Computed example of a mutant assay.
Amino acid sequence: MADLARRFADLPDFDNLRDRGAVRFKSLDGLYGTDAVVDTAEQVRTYAAETEEAVAAGFAGFRVAAEVTNLVRTPAQLDAFAGYEHAVDRYMAAYPFEALCAYNVPVLGTAAVDKLASMHPRGNVEGVPFHLHGWGQAGAVALEGELDLRAHDLFPWALDRAAPQWGPGEVVLDARELTFIDHRGLLRLAEQADRRGITIVLRTRRFSAARMVDILGIAGVRVEQVA
């Protein structure tokens, strides 16, 4: 931790920030085993408690930057962490908490990092066709980008990790920033709606989505056209 702290020593007022607890460094070593799988509910509760503690101490909120390559090395870890990313992102949309995750691309490979990047609202990974993430208020979901040929394998994977946390009843997907969705994307949404016993409300600027749902008789998905 001392080596890491020295990298930030030249930042303005760094020593004062650290002395009053505004900046802290914590090692993940020893917290997780080599093949540890993240517990989504427990980790979100942990960050919620940290956020409440920070606000109670007079801070505006709580921010975390973490290098988490070791938590996504195996397929089981990757699946669990993607679900956690969606859950914590929905928490962040409603509370004064932000997190930045860092991944080692040479270690994980571009395919794994692309999967994780698709679950974030933003990042520095180029070429990811869409982003499925929490938005606006607790429980809300946003879908951005394009659901075209490039997304045919990635979109079902992302849905399988995110959708178990949706429902009951109607789930609104704010898709105003979704510039294209083909019939396969709509069918993937319908499959999730049927599997979860929910209705997915797709709010989009694209008239074509409503037309495809009507023509193909896609059940479980209702398209609401918005400005």
Rank of each mutant, 00 (worst) to 15 (best):
A102E: 09
A56M: 02
T40G: 11
A94N: 05
L78R: 12
F81Y: 15
G83M: 01
A93Q: 10
T69W: 04
A56Y: 02
A102D: 05
L71R: 09
R63A: 12
G109N: 05
N70K: 14
L31G: 12
G83R: 03
V64A: 11
E53S: 13
P121C: 14
V68M: 12
D35T: 14
P106Q: 02
Y84K: 00
A41W: 00
G127E: 04
Y95W: 07
F81A: 02
A111Y: 00
Q77G: 04
N70W: 03
V55S: 02
N104Y: 08
V88Q: 00
D79G: 00
E126N: 07
A60I: 03
D89V: 09
V37D: 00
R122G: 15
G30D: 07
F59S: 01
G33K: 07
L31F: 12
E50Y: 09
P106S: 06
P121W: 08
V107H: 00
D39P: 04
V64H: 02
A66V: 15
A56L: 05
G33C: 10
L108H: 03
S27Y: 00
G127K: 03
K115R: 15
V113Y: 03
A65L: 09
L100A: 14
A49D: 15
A54Q: 01
Y95Q: 13
K26S: 13
F62L: 06
Y47W: 06
G58M: 01
E126T: 09
